[in-house]
Amino acid sequence: MLHEPAPQTQERDHALAAKAKLGVRLFWAYCLVYAGFVVINTVDPELMESEILLGQNLAVVYGLGLILLAIVLGLAYNRMCTRLEDTMRADAEKGE
């Protein structure tokens, strides 16, 4: 089964700093889009009524867009992190 004592993975992660930096950048990018949504809803909620895409209003498009953006950014982040981990581990192994 999958639940016996855990293998303690102490393998050194050479991409730690680069991944953290990337994560923080993507976090701020998403934060900005999310803040825009909150600001519009607070300052001018009627703007959310405007039809902007195939009969859908801004509220629906922005709301669904935020959900979709989280998924897309997540996938992109994983891809970039995996690449960073593999590249930096390979570089470190060459150096050793």
Binding site: G23, V24, L26, F27, Y30, G63, L66, I67, A70, G74
Partner: peptide, 24 residues
């Protein structure tokens, strides 16, 4: 739509979890 704001907020919270919190 006000109820859907919870869906948006709950999901957005996962972005913080992924980009900042998960690995550390």
């Amino acid at each position: 739509y006000d109820g859907f704001l919870y869906s948006i907020g709950y999901l957005a919270g996962w972005v913080v979890a992924l980009f900042v919190v998960a690995e550390p």
